[in-house]
């Protein structure tokens, strides 16, 4: 029995990856929930918005690398991120002007706007694939580990290693900063408050003189920034492939709905609920359990509840349970 090693194995295989993945989902879900709260539709193009922002960031990263610019131990992509955000913001603002605004003025039903967002999804998807192709792109550089397995072993003398990859650390730190900034913005600034007011009660917000076009534009800006950051962090941590980003729609929407669509706090909670459920159910527990139990009781199988191929089934199942038993989500949705 070796509880310390069991704990380290748990941290290494479940907790740390879950923290990073959860942060990525939370950022994605925040974007979805903001759009839902202000523009009142489920944006199916969000996954591809993430892909678009990541693509621009990757291209700029390559250019920087080509010019010999790096960010020391940190990924160069972080330097390219502002450009990615700016390009994505410009793209979604143009989309809003050319596409969504018409339906907003018409007061079209949310379902129609969702179908419109499918069209936008197609276009973004096509652009991304056209420019960067359909294949995996790995663009992480800089130091690979904050704590490598070997260093940890040498420092602690434990058999089980604990490795923290730079991308994981970067993900969590960036997410904390972004979320803190977002909440400060929504809670403390005039524009942020006006967004919350607009989301809460559109008619009254108009009566109070809040400019709807400005609120909508700011919302798109923030959603573009969140999507790009989430996409780049996910791409750094795993890899970038356009189709994977489309598939991320499901866990991201699950996170937003589990938390309560329209609730930023809920989106964050939902992101971590989905990420940890996925990892807990698809993790092979053999190693951890072997450490935790007396030797005579060591298990034979992998002790994996579900193959990782079915990770979508996890978010889906949680989604269905929430929809059936608490349709408004963990935090009551509908307003920022």
């Amino acid at each position: 029995m070796d509880l310390l090693n069991a704990l380290v194995a748990f941290l290494n295989f479940v907790f740390i990856p879950g923290l990073a993945y959860g942060a990525q989902l939370a950022l994605g879900a925040l974007g979805v929930t903001l759009i839902y709260g202000i523009l009142r539709f489920s944006n199916f193009a969000h996954g591809d918005t993430m892909a678009f922002g990541t693509m621009v960031t990757i291209l700029v990263t390559w250019a920087l690398q080509g010019a010999g610019v790096t960010f020391g131990p940190l990924p160069t992509a972080l330097l390219a991120l502002p450009v990615g955000i700016a390009a994505t913001a410009a793209f979604v603002l143009a989309t809003d002007r050319v596409v969504y605004r018409f339906y907003r003025r018409q007061k079209a039903s949310p379902t129609i706007v969702v179908i419109v967002s499918l069209g936008v999804m197609f276009v973004m998807n096509g652009i991304v694939r056209l420019i960067i192709g359909v294949n995996d792109q790995n663009f992480a550089d800089g130091a690979r580990f904050v704590i490598s397995a070997q260093e940890f072993r040498e420092a602690t003398g434990l058999a089980e290693p604990l490795a923290i990859r730079t991308t994981q650390a970067v993900t969590v730190v960036t997410a904390v900063i972004v979320v803190a900034l977002l909440f400060w913005f929504l809670q403390k600034t005039r524009t942020g408050k006006s967004m919350r007011a607009f989301s809460d009660n559109e008619d009254l917000a108009l009566l109070s003189g809040i400019n709807p076009d400005r609120v909508v534009a700011v919302t798109w800006l923030i959603a573009a920034a969140l999507a790009t950051i989430a996409g780049v962090l996910y791409g750094l941590d795993k890899s970038f492939k356009p189709f994977t980003y489309f598939q991320l729609l499901l866990p991201i929407f699950a996170a937003a709905i589990v938390g309560g669509l329209g609730s930023p706090l809920g989106a964050i909670a939902g992101g971590f609920v989905i990420a940890f459920s996925e990892l807990l159910l698809t993790n092979a527990w053999k190693k951890i359990v072997t450490y935790a139990l007396p030797e005579s009781m060591a298990p034979d199988g992998l002790l994996q509840l579900m193959s990782t191929d079915y990770k979508f089934a996890v978010s889906f199942t949680i989604l269905i349970i929430v929809l059936l038993f608490m349709p408004t989500g963990l935090f009551k949705g509908k307003s920022l």
């Binding site: 197609f122 998807n125 096509g126």
Partner: peptide, 12 residues
């Protein structure tokens, strides 16, 4: 991939 783009534009 141009096909995806075209489909999206047609839909819109």
């Amino acid at each position: 991939n141009i096909r995806l783009l075209t489909l999206g534009v047609i839909l819109l």
